[in-house]
């Protein structure tokens, strides 16, 4: 699962990133810059020279989504819903207002819907047309969510996609795929795993993964890896 405070330096990178250069230790920063790196630098320089952007504001935007807004927000919401039935009822009835009470509002989360997974229904969220994703509760989307394999297959073969990432659903479970084609943003409320009776909200939040809140994972019982 992702960590809010992870930085790219020296980190893994996705296979989709063959085109633009990445922070790959095998290609250090003194190597020639790729076309896309140069294009972005040229663009930023020109816009800065014309007074159209303040580079410090760009730094602030980046820092916000690298260190402040991320899937730990969503995990706290899920854990609270698991321990507080009244909160869960409000969350499912009016996600936007209930999340706003916790301070989770704003860009790409203006109108929220929370979908509850149960032993009978499994929800899965996709955006086939672009990459719509609930930023205030999950941060910016992972590469796989924005990439062609997931966007193409989630709607036509959701069970195949789920099997591939380790979720094998019984035949009698209903799979609901939510294609985020409008400005509604969807958060999946995963099932609370067994063996967590009496756990605190903080302990439960540690179990909740970003992928479970998109619907491509289940929350594993304590002591299991997924």
């Amino acid at each position: 699962m992702a960590h809010d405070h992870d930085h790219a330096d020296g980190g893994d990178h996705a296979p989709e990133h063959h085109h633009g250069s990445t922070d790959d230790p095998a290609h250090p920063h003194n190597a020639p810059l790729s076309d896309v790196q140069l294009r972005v630098k040229a663009l930023e320089s020109l816009l800065t020279e014309r007074g159209l952007v303040d580079p410090a504001a760009l730094d602030e935007l980046i820092d916000t989504y690298e260190t402040k807004v991320g899937p730990r927000n969503g995990a706290r919401v899920v854990a609270k819903a698991w321990v507080d039935p009244e909160f869960k009822r409000r969350l499912l009835a009016d996600a936007t207002a209930t999340l706003a009470d916790l301070g989770y509002i704003g860009r790409q989360g203006e109108d929220m819907v929370v979908l509850e997974n149960t032993p009978r229904v499994h929800n899965l969220v996709v955006c086939t047309l672009c990459s719509c994703y609930p930023w205030p509760v999950l941060g910016l989307p992972p590469v796989w969510y924005k990439s062609a394999p997931y966007r193409s297959r989630a709607v036509i073969d959701p069970r195949g996609v789920l099997r591939e990432v380790g979720v094998d659903l019984p035949d009698d479970v209903e799979v609901r795929v939510w294609d985020s084609t409008a400005e509604l943003r969807y958060l999946v409320l995963p099932e609370r795993p067994p063996g967590t009776e009496g756990w605190s909200e903080d302990e439960l939040a540690q179990l909740v993964t970003r992928d479970a809140m998109i619907g491509v994972a289940q929350v594993g019982a304590p002591g299991t890896s997924r």
Partner: peptide, 27 residues
């Protein structure tokens, strides 16, 4: 398009140019 590949411990951005392209677009 092939399989869906989840990246363990994926960073928010994979390169400095991605950070700047994102922020320039929002700004």
């Amino acid at each position: 398009f092939g399989p869906v590949v989840l990246e363990p411990d994926e960073p928010v951005f994979h390169a400095e140019w991605e950070r700047r392209a994102f922020a320039l677009t929002v700004a």
